[in-house]
């Protein structure tokens, strides 16, 4: 699903945000990008999403090489992805319904179908009662769930989530992780960026540890605790 080969990203020449990242994420995998603040997690997700471009290296997503294809295919690629942004990126003056529906609207799906699917996904994230509210008056956790709903409403092949539980309490976090697990079971590849160690315990899952823009190691965690299986700087295979 995702291949990165010796990828570098420098926002400024002196201080690299990512350096020599190589990793391989298979279709259907559930992966955490784990690391402290400033490690480069968001940058990594943005590269996969095509919102930033690598300074060096190759990125292949869903069989498409980001360096090669025409600009106009990026929107088509994005329709197969969902992205939960760290800062949500909601339209603050549109209703919850409109915000979530937007992801379907831009694909040209019929109104009745949009309604059906948006209502369904809002039920999943527990926001059925907030349909006609604007994000401006929602709590942080509620906004986060709207962002999640928008990211999954088009049933993406790949879901990228940047700190998707950063504003949620333990109970809601559990709910959302359960939701991600269900989506993963449908076959969606999931990549979650987090600095929250507790999150890693919800699933037996792969963890890519990131620090100072470099991969420190790749783990597989389970309910019984973390056990290291892969090497430093290595790739998941």
């Amino acid at each position: 699903m995702i291949q990165m080969l010796h990828v570098y990203k420098n926002y400024s020449p002196k201080y690299p945000a990512l350096s020599d990242i190589s990793l391989n994420i298979e279709k259907g995998e559930f992966v955490f990008i784990f690391g402290p603040s400033g490690a480069g997690k968001t940058t990594l997700l943005k590269l996969i999403f095509g919102a930033e471009h690598p300074s060096k290296g190759q990125i292949i997503v869903n069989g498409m090489n980001f360096g090669r294809f025409k600009k106009s295919t990026l929107p088509l690629l994005r329709r197969k992805m969902g992205f939960v942004f760290q800062d949500f990126k909601l339209l603050n003056h549109r209703t919850v319904f409109d915000n979530v529906g937007l992801a379907l609207e831009v694909v040209g799906i019929k109104k009745t179908e949009i309604k059906r699917r948006v209502l369904k996904v809002l039920k999943h994230v527990g926001l059925s009662s907030r349909i006609n509210t604007v994000p401006l008056v929602l709590s942080g956790g509620e906004q986060q769930r709207v962002a999640i709903a928008r990211a999954i409403v088009n049933e993406p092949a790949l879901l990228l989530a940047d700190e998707p539980t950063g504003n949620l309490d333990a109970e809601l976090t559990k709910e959302i992780m359960k939701l991600f697990k269900i989506i993963n079971a449908w076959g969606t590849t999931i990549v979650i960026a987090t600095h929250d160690k507790n999150l890693l315990n919800f699933n037996p899952t792969k963890v890519v540890a990131l620090e100072h823009g470099k991969i420190k190691g790749v783990f597989v965690t389970g309910r019984k605790g973390a056990e290291e299986t892969a090497t430093r700087n290595g790739s998941i295979n």
Binding site: P75, L90, L102
Partner: peptide
């Protein structure tokens, strides 16, 4: 511009 940006992020073509 936020609206335009977000539309792009959810996969809208420039034409759209």
């Amino acid at each position: 511009k936020d609206e335009i940006e977000i539309m792009k992020l959810v996969g809208a073509t420039n034409f759209f």
